[in-house]
Simulated assay, not measured.
Amino acid sequence: MVFHIGTKEEVTDSRSENQRILPSTSQEESPGLVFQWKHWLKEPSFYQVAFLHMCTRLIVNLSQTYISVYLTNSLMLPKNYIAIIPLVMYVSGFVCSLVMKPVSKRMGISITYLVGLLLVVGFAVWVLVDKSMGAETIYGAAVLLGASSASILVMSLSMTATLIGEQTGSADFVYGSMSLTDKLANGLGVLLIQSTRPCGTEAYCPDCIWFYRDIMVSVTGGVGVAAALKICTTLIAQRPAAQTAFGFIVTSWCR
């Protein structure tokens, strides 16, 4: 009620609004093009953003799914940590999301997203190296994971909104496609993890102790590295100077 009553919208002509175009290469070639759902399937940026959105949701959802069993079965912490640690993650994520807007304006959406991914990978390295993580250090790791997850999630949504631009008439297809992609990826991810679980019963064996630690590392670190490589290649492709410098470095290294 507060949103619908308190949000003021600028009343514009629907025809003039639909004639605005998204500043992408294909649309610049065809001024006045109004995107329908089938037009998005021809846009490379649509698949790039979908991949990054899928990686973001895999990191956020799977880490939240398996953090509880990681705490109780890998770290052997009391069960009250099942409530405390997610709360710490949510609070740190909320605080971090408040500063995302000014940070993204200064650094850009892609760079801010890349920084968030580096923090995610930092959490994975921390979990991998600190095998004796206890009640004292788990709070720091939870703050890092919560802040990094919020960062990449907010920036992922910003990327989707930027991709849509003024083509709001087909925004439902874009958001629906992004949601479908991440739901399928998360479902397959959970299915794959559960199928590789050492124990086939509800009881946990000694092999399960480090299984969920490895899951936390591979989900956050592995997917984070994949997303970081993708965003780096996109940034290099968009900047000819950076692309030339990157090619020079690769050529020098090969020599």
Rank of each mutant, 00 (worst) to 15 (best):
H4R: 11
I5F: 15
E9W: 08
E9N: 08
T12R: 13
R15A: 14
L22D: 04
L22I: 01
P23W: 03
T25A: 15
T25K: 15
S26W: 11
Q36P: 01
K38D: 10
W40D: 15
L41V: 13
S45T: 08
A50H: 06
C55N: 10
T56L: 03
V60G: 05
L62P: 12
Y70I: 11
N73C: 01
P78T: 05
P86M: 14
V95Y: 12
P102W: 01
V127L: 06
V129P: 07
D130W: 06
D130R: 07
K131N: 08
A135R: 06
S149V: 02
A150W: 00
S156A: 03
L157R: 02
Q167L: 04
F173K: 02
G176M: 02
S177C: 08
M178E: 01
T181L: 09
D182M: 15
G187W: 04
G189E: 00
L191I: 03
T196P: 08
G200F: 03
G200A: 04
T201M: 13
D207I: 05
I209M: 12
S218I: 14
T220E: 02
A227L: 11
A227P: 12
L229R: 12
I231M: 09
T233R: 11
Q243R: 15
V250P: 06
T251E: 06
R255L: 11
